[in-house]
Simulated assay, not measured.
Amino acid sequence: MLITQNLSLVRILRSTWKVDLMMIFTCVATYYLHEYIVSRAIQIPATLATLLGTAIAFFVGFNNNQAYSRWWEARTIWGAIVNDSRSWTRNILYYTVPGELTIDELAALKKRIIFRQIAFIYALKESLRRNAEGYYKQFLSETDLEQVNKESNTANAILSLHAIDLQQLSQAHAIDEFRFVQFNTLISALTDHMGRSERIRNTVFPTSYIYFTRLFIWAFVIFLTLILADAVGGWSIVIGWIIGFIFHVTHQNGMGLMDPFDEISTGIPLNQICRTIEINLLQMLGEKDIPPPVQPINQEYYL
């Protein structure tokens, strides 16, 4: 996620240089096509560029709105995961009593449950980003890890272990029925957040929208250069490139939000969010070995 209001020229060029070169080549080729072929055969009306530009603006605006909606929903989901993780930990720490357990048994169970919650958020992050770092494994006991490895959905398996320990707390009279319902509601909420995240990850943005928008932008650049060649001559190359660059970069910015869980500068900062949850939960538990916060890359963005 970008954290700066301004982008350096180097960063802009690094992300757009291929489009710039293709745009310039297209404008140059179109200009010479106009000079030697088109101008002798047909006169293209200027209204064509106006109509086509208006239509493309609607296409680009629609794509960007839909992409931003996906990005914002993903950010909202992970904001809720942060809150529910803190609530889950607070409830485990302060709303449980020994009951039929010893104080040491309850303390060990609390620690195991809270560590497992940290494992859940890291396992979900790895699933959404489709990598296998295995960072979550250090927060699971050998028994839990053996159980989790039996299932393909690691995050869901961890929530099942939460449910098993919740039942153990209830049977040991460490929580009453009212608090059992509260705890179960939090597990259900975490399951809902997980499912919504997976829906965004697994739902492909309609390819036709992306493909035809790009195709129409290139068509617009060609027609605009042809039309301007009659009025401004060789300057039509520069103007066509500038207008095309604006449309392409605007569309590209929207597409950068299309897959919010990708490990890119415009994606959701899952590394930062997960580390924040880890720090908060460990501090609530009273642990001394606290990892440092994630630092921004080049002071521009978090991953």
Score class of each variant (00 low, 15 high):
residue 151 E to K: 14
residue 135 Y to L: 08
residue 111 K to H: 14
residue 108 A to F: 13
residue 133 E to Q: 05
residue 117 Q to R: 06
residue 154 T to N: 03
residue 128 L to R: 02
residue 64 N to R: 10
residue 55 A to N: 03
residue 62 F to G: 08
residue 84 D to P: 03
residue 102 T to C: 05
residue 128 L to I: 10
residue 62 F to M: 12
residue 112 R to W: 01
residue 97 V to N: 15
residue 73 E to H: 05
residue 176 D to F: 12
residue 71 W to C: 00
residue 75 R to S: 08
residue 117 Q to H: 15
residue 121 I to C: 08
residue 180 F to V: 00
residue 162 H to C: 13
residue 153 N to F: 06
residue 63 N to S: 08
residue 111 K to P: 04
residue 168 Q to H: 15
residue 55 A to P: 02
residue 99 G to Y: 14
residue 153 N to S: 07
residue 179 R to A: 05
residue 91 N to S: 04
residue 56 I to H: 06
residue 68 Y to W: 09
residue 187 I to F: 03
residue 130 R to L: 13
residue 171 Q to P: 01
residue 93 L to F: 10
residue 161 L to Y: 03
residue 101 L to G: 03
residue 78 W to L: 00
residue 130 R to T: 08
residue 73 E to T: 05
residue 117 Q to A: 04
residue 74 A to T: 02
residue 120 F to L: 04
residue 181 V to Y: 06
residue 93 L to S: 12
residue 128 L to C: 06
residue 77 I to N: 06
residue 88 W to M: 08
residue 180 F to E: 11
residue 81 I to D: 00
residue 164 I to A: 02
residue 163 A to E: 07
residue 66 Q to D: 12
residue 152 S to P: 02
residue 161 L to N: 04
residue 76 T to I: 01
residue 146 E to K: 14
residue 112 R to V: 09
residue 91 N to H: 09
residue 65 N to Y: 13
residue 91 N to E: 05
residue 148 V to I: 10
residue 55 A to D: 02
residue 150 K to F: 05
residue 64 N to E: 01
residue 153 N to A: 07
residue 108 A to D: 15
residue 140 L to R: 08
residue 171 Q to H: 09
residue 147 Q to I: 11
residue 168 Q to N: 14
residue 156 N to C: 00
residue 120 F to C: 02
residue 168 Q to F: 15
residue 141 S to E: 12
residue 175 I to C: 08
residue 176 D to P: 09
residue 176 D to I: 06
residue 121 I to D: 07
residue 119 A to C: 04
residue 151 E to N: 11
residue 185 T to E: 12
residue 87 S to W: 02
residue 172 A to G: 03
residue 105 E to Y: 04
residue 87 S to F: 00
residue 102 T to A: 05
residue 84 D to H: 09
residue 185 T to Q: 11
residue 59 F to Y: 14
residue 101 L to H: 07
residue 66 Q to Y: 10
residue 91 N to L: 10
residue 134 G to C: 07
residue 151 E to D: 11
residue 168 Q to A: 14
residue 179 R to Y: 15
residue 133 E to S: 12
residue 142 E to V: 14
residue 170 S to D: 06
residue 74 A to R: 02
residue 152 S to T: 11
residue 158 I to W: 01
residue 77 I to G: 02
residue 134 G to A: 09
residue 76 T to D: 05
residue 186 L to N: 09
residue 182 Q to P: 00
residue 162 H to I: 00
residue 149 N to D: 15
residue 105 E to H: 09
residue 58 F to H: 09
residue 178 F to W: 14
residue 74 A to E: 01
residue 156 N to P: 00
residue 162 H to Y: 13
residue 85 S to F: 04
residue 164 I to F: 01
residue 68 Y to K: 05
residue 71 W to D: 01
residue 83 N to S: 11
residue 162 H to T: 01
residue 147 Q to H: 13
residue 174 A to Y: 05
residue 92 I to V: 15
residue 57 A to N: 09
residue 170 S to N: 08
residue 129 R to I: 08
residue 91 N to G: 03
residue 85 S to W: 04
residue 56 I to V: 14
residue 154 T to A: 11
residue 73 E to F: 01
residue 106 L to S: 10
residue 64 N to C: 06
residue 116 R to L: 10
residue 133 E to A: 11
residue 136 Y to H: 14
residue 75 R to H: 10
residue 55 A to M: 14
residue 163 A to Y: 07
residue 177 E to R: 12
residue 65 N to D: 04
residue 125 K to M: 12
residue 142 E to H: 12
residue 122 Y to K: 12
residue 167 Q to F: 10
residue 98 P to K: 14
residue 85 S to D: 00
residue 143 T to S: 08
residue 114 I to D: 07
residue 93 L to R: 02
residue 135 Y to N: 05
